[in-house]
Design a protein around this nucleic acid. Structure first.
Lengths: 245, 245
DNA sequence: TTCGATTTGTACGTATGTATA
DNA sequence: ATATACATACGTACAAATCGA
């Protein structure tokens, strides 16, 4: 909001830093509350840069679908607030976002059987190298990608879960079809990093964007691990909310 | 690890993107397991860039204290794994990191009485504009800054908590001095964004770095809010871990 | 010890991107 | 749109340090 000092010679172009600031301010409600951005000249003065530099930032955000400029009228905000994704014992994607978005959808990108890496094996409680089924999915809310996830299941217990997912387009329902009527989240770790090329493509982000990475283990009602998942959330579109029971 | 495609003309310099990749790979243990980085020529081939571009990335990470290059020998890793910061009902900084770091320390940057903003008021359950006490702190583990936090307390109930903190250098102990012997975390939201100029300075980060932002409310044993805190964690040095009870 | 292979350090030239005026 | 300055990226060449044969 107030004249933040931008970093020159940092490897990040000024227009990109300004674009990141504006995007973040819109997401947090600091800017664009009235649906419009201040005039370019005002922004240029605020950031102490040339008006053309502000224009580059705005052009990038137009490309991203965040802003819309109209000659002679001004620059307007297309989208506003972040979604709030709840993380609790009973975390399910569509149920958690249901009241915030009009429509939610989880799409299957790829499914395959592979042998468990050390990490996957540890989290699923099987020996490393055992066959596991991997599901790669992308979840959208109101047509905009929110997260992508890679899930692993013990192949011996969940044979056919890939087809079940293809049928129901829901992890919860696919597990149900495999005889798991209830499951709870045991633990979640959260880290943040820059989006990879895959993240940028699949979540429709721009370079330099940030993803929140969660790693979670779900267990059945007996406490046995049934799913290990690594998810990547578009940090500009979602926040994570942890509710203590 | 494998040849990720970097984004050109994205406003983020290639050397910066490569530096971010290498830093992240080191933090997750993908790279530098043996304490050394592959030769510059090999990295250049992997990322499909000129050797000089890799050298710029390495230079930035040397400046940050992540790497150390020696002529004729190679490039070596100074630090390795991320700290894991637990978030649970009873979250306390030093206790949570105690077993991972040799020493932990929380320093007071500033304390002052101010009138509550709408957000602070909502979270503390007081009317907006009421006097509140704000504490700005930085926490370090093994001499490296891990997080900075801004905490607000109801001034009418916690008068003198700033002096109490100055004496004990611990929020938990300062609360205890104010008669709160136990408290639990009610809720936490997590988001991620690029570090601000202040974050970069106080957490000793480099431009383009990422911070994990948490907003949390702590309540006393009767369920009354006693503290609202906004924390910023250096995403390269820490992950957040949520344990379900 | 000398030699060659490997690896990092330095220097020059050129083209393109970024930022200002 | 033009001009100017600096940052970024590539290509090439060679120097300096290390290591093992």
């Amino acid at each position: 909001m107030t004249g933040a000092v931008l970093e020159r010679k940092s490897g990040v172009a000024l227009w990109r830093q300004i674009a990141d600031l504006i995007r973040s301010d819109i997401a947090t409600g600091v800017a664009g509350q009235d649906g419009r951005l201040p005039p370019e000249m005002e922004l240029a003065k605020r950031y102490s840069v040339n008006r053309h530099t502000v224009r580059s930032a705005i052009a990038a955000l137009e490309q991203e679908g965040v802003l819309r400029s109209e000659q002679g009228r001004g620059t307007f905000v297309r989208r506003r607030k972040r979604l709030s994704y709840p993380i609790a014992k009973r975390t399910r994607f569509s149920a958690g976002l249901g009241n915030q978005a009009g429509s939610t959808l989880t799409r299957l990108l790829e499914s395959m059987e592979e042998s468990a890496s050390q990490t996957v094996a540890d989290n699923l409680g099987v020996p490393a190298g055992d066959p596991v089924i991997r599901l790669d999915t992308v979840s959208e809310a109101d047509g905009l990608p929110v997260s992508r996830a890679t899930s692993w299941f013990d192949a011996s217990r969940f044979a056919g879960i890939d087809e079940a997912f293809g049928e129901h387009a829901s992890i919860t329902k696919a597990l149900s079809a495999c005889g798991v009527t209830d499951y709870v989240r045991k633990s979640t770790t959260i880290e943040a990093r820059h989006a990879s090329a895959d993240d940028i493509r699949l979540l429709r982000l721009s370079a330099g964007a940030i993803v929140l990475v969660t790693r979670a283990v779900n267990t059945d009602s007996d406490g046995n691990p049934i799913q290990y998942a690594e998810s990547r959330f578009a940090a500009d579109r979602v926040e994570l909310k942890i509710e203590s029971d």
